[in-house]
Deep mutational scan, measured.
Amino acid sequence: GKMTGIVKWFNADKGFGFITPDDGSKDVFVHFSAIQNDGYKSSDEGQKVSFTIESGAKGPAAGNVTSL
């Protein structure tokens, strides 16, 4: 299901970062391709987002990331 969290950091040059879930669980990796914004796929530190957890090649990753 959908979770909410805060972007801990995001490196636009490398195209990835981490989200800290609101439920206190482990930080989740986020790749720019998962960000659902139109246009520039980046996110700012401290941005509140909703997301799903997908199982990626390197473990859990955020999917369907949407700014709230």
Rank of each mutant, 00 (worst) to 15 (best):
K41D: 10
N37F: 14
D44Y: 15
D27I: 05
A34H: 06
D22A: 06
A34S: 10
K48L: 10
N37Q: 13
I6Y: 11
A62S: 01
D44V: 15
K58M: 10
F16R: 00
S55V: 14
N11L: 05
F18P: 00
I6F: 10
Q47H: 12
G5Q: 01
K8T: 06
G17P: 00
T66M: 11
Q36C: 14
V30W: 08
Q47S: 12
S25R: 05
E45N: 13
M3D: 03
K8S: 07
K14P: 02
K26L: 08
E45V: 15
F32G: 07
F32E: 07
A62P: 03
P21C: 07
D23A: 03
A62F: 02
D44K: 15
N11D: 12
T20Q: 10
K14N: 05
P60A: 07
T52C: 10
T4P: 02
A57N: 10
T52S: 08
M3R: 09
F32V: 13
S33G: 06
G5H: 02
S43G: 11
P21T: 05
I35F: 15
K58A: 09
K41F: 14
V7R: 00
T20P: 02
D13N: 12
D27E: 08
D23T: 04
S42T: 14
V28Y: 03
G24L: 04
G56N: 10
A57F: 12
T20D: 01
A34W: 04
D27R: 03
G59S: 05
Y40K: 08
S55P: 12
I53F: 06
A61K: 14
A62L: 03
K26N: 10
G15N: 04
D13C: 14
G39N: 10
N37T: 13
G1Q: 13
T4Y: 08
A62N: 02
F32C: 12
G46R: 08
K26H: 09
G15W: 03
I19Y: 00
F32K: 13
S43W: 15
F51D: 01
G5T: 01
S25G: 13
A34M: 07
D13A: 13
S33P: 02
F51Y: 10
A57K: 12
D22I: 05
Q36N: 12
Y40G: 11
K41P: 10
S55W: 15
W9I: 02
F10M: 03
Q47N: 10
S42V: 14
G24W: 04
T66V: 13
N64I: 05
K2I: 13
N64T: 06
H31M: 05
S33I: 05
V30N: 00
L68Q: 07
F51E: 02
E54V: 14
K41A: 10
I19T: 00
D44G: 14
G5E: 02
D38W: 13
S50Y: 08
G1P: 13
V49A: 00
Q47Y: 11
I19W: 02
